[in-house]
Design a protein around this nucleic acid. Sequence first.
DNA 1: ATATCGACCTGCCGGC
DNA 2: TGCCGGCAGGTCGATA
Length: 270
Amino acid sequence: MPELPEVETTVAGLRKVLDGQRITRAEAFRADLRWPIPEDLRQRLTGATITGLGRRAKYGLIYTDRDDVLIFHLGMSGRWRVDPAEMEKHDHFLLETAAGRVVALNDHRRFGSLDIVANGTLADYRFFAKMGPEPLSDEFDAEVLQKALKGRKAPIKAMLLNQNIVAGLGNIYVCEALHMAGIAPDALSEKISKPRLVKLVIAIKVVLTSAIAAGGSTLRDFAAPDGELGYFAKDWRVYGREGEVCGCGAQVKRRVDSGRSTFYCAKCQR
DNA sequence: ATATCGACCTGCCGGC
DNA sequence: TGCCGGCAGGTCGATA
């Protein structure tokens, strides 16, 4: 379930295993995921020491002492398996450390990606260059959001899914944040009042922060021999709850917008 | 520039 | 039991 909170939790888990470690083996088991995997990946990683891990939007970042950054995206179905007993179907990439720890990237739909770039060029990375602010940063506030939405005709849900407006939200947390803020998914972005945008920004931060906190509580699982990431408390208020009763007493509705499910409450979201 | 939509993959579930 | 349609946490890139 890789939106920002899941990537954040994934990176935190990987950090415990990889940070400061020397890479003794780096191997891809296929030439591409969504995009080609760089051919020099193995050579650039093998023997390098990992100096830190980070995240940008839904991308995980693994820094090495060769001034490289390994960039991964989990797509829809990606997850890292830690110290797997054996390789499984859809394990596409593996890192092993001098300490004997192994992490394997498993992604059955292959919408994820793996790339490596020089650290100094990270900001210009083709998928980062036009990206919007991190939703949890102080930089992201109602002013910034209002500016970004100015002149935009698309509904607010589409705008929040657009990584160039704000980077890291996906279908689940957009539905959740809009519900928490009481804003209809199809509200015209440009017309949403400043006070409501303030509320929306707060909702986004609250929803993401609590999801990260929930993910954090499962970090123990990450280090388990057969550990895998991806179980998080499913305490969603609307997502996946079509037909269930909203807090206000009305029924949660589901609608499909440009091919994606939208869950909302027509009574409390206007 | 912006908005929309098809495409990329595999797996699972429900219905017939 | 099997087949088929629909659905899934993402987003790029082609089109209008």
